[in-house]
Every structure is written in C-alpha cells, then in structure tokens.
Simulated scan of single mutants.
Amino acid sequence: MGKPSGRRIVVAVVAVLAVAAAAAVVLRVLAPAEVETVARGAYPAAPTPPVGVIGRLPVAPLVVDGRLRVYAGARQVYADQPVSGKHRVTPFWSYRRWPAKLVGVLAEGTTVVSRWSDGKLVALDAHTGRVAWRADGPGPGAVPKPRRTYAATVWDPAGLHVTRAADGGAVLVAA
C-alpha cells in the first residue's frame, strides 16, 4: 500500500464533511428547543360582531380578552385575530416547545397559561405573546390523546384550574 492518491483524499474529506453536516442537522432538528414568535402588530381592538354565526373554524379556539382566538396544537400555542374573522389567519403570536407536548391551555384575563407533558407551566402575555413566567409543576400523568381539533386541550385542560384567593386574586392550580 502506498500513499493515497489525491482523488481518494478529496473523497475522504467530502465524506467526513457530509457526515459532520448531517450530524449538525440532526442535532439542530432534534435538540430540545423553545421558540417564541412575538406579535409584530398592535393589540387588536375589541370588535362588536353582528349577532349570529360569524364563521366556521375547523378547530376549537379559546377566546381571550374578547380580542384574540387562541389555538392549541401538538407542540404549539398560537393566537390569531380578529376574533370575528371567518377563517384562521397567520398567527398574531406563537409559542412552541420541543420535544414536550401541549396538554392544556387556559386563560385568565390577558394571561394564557400552557401546561406541557414535562410538567412545565408557561404563562404568555396575550398582548405580545412573550413569556410572562415559567414554573415547574407536577407531571400531568395520563392525558387522553387529543382529537384533531384540540378542543379538550383548550376547553377542558387536564388538571389545570384557576380559582380565587381570599383577597380576590387569581390562583393557578395544577394537579
């Protein structure tokens, strides 16, 4: 065996670079991540829609502050507006986590609280979509698999409740 020829060296270098690039892509795609896409426009004004059916949506939104529709997905909470729109539109703000799955969403005033499969509780400001606070909570335990509309995730969040303290302040209960 002699010295490797120039062609073999080039092929070996290209192969090493291809493996390194593939490893970087896999790490980037599968690494735990949190993506916060905040609102770029002004908070919408409260509309006064006509009485009756306004539109038909293929998913079940949670109406927050009478101005935003908040939706749930497998790994995402997002809001669109106007609340009186006939169809879903480009999100006003969005919050995603990986690899955790969303198990519940509720709103109190202009705070949207999400509960994740890893036990994290994340509160978002409905005006901007920015994270207001994060907390470690108890794991959600066995949660039924959501249907395609994620209606139960926003209308009946498993183990996530808001109650009032003696002074009238809101208290989040995660069980």
Rank of each mutant, 00 (worst) to 15 (best):
D136Q: 08
R28P: 00
P44Y: 14
G55L: 08
P49C: 14
V16T: 10
I54H: 10
V162F: 14
A152P: 05
V29P: 08
F92P: 04
P50L: 01
V143G: 04
V14K: 06
A142L: 12
I9H: 09
A21P: 01
G55R: 06
D156H: 05
D118C: 08
V53D: 07
P61D: 01
H127E: 08
L102M: 00
R88Q: 10
V13H: 11
R134H: 01
A23T: 09
T163M: 10
R97G: 00
Q76D: 06
W155N: 11
A18W: 05
G168I: 15
W133A: 04
A74H: 05
Y150P: 05
T90H: 09
V64D: 01
L57M: 03
H127R: 10
S114G: 03
A18Q: 13
G6D: 10
T163S: 14
A175S: 15
L30K: 13
A79F: 07
R147S: 05
S94Q: 01
D125M: 08
L106R: 14
D80C: 04
V29M: 06
R69W: 00
A142M: 13
M1D: 05
Y43V: 12
A79D: 07
L160I: 11
V53M: 14
L62W: 00
L68T: 04
G137R: 13
A151I: 00
P44A: 04
P144I: 15
P140I: 00
A170L: 12
L172W: 00
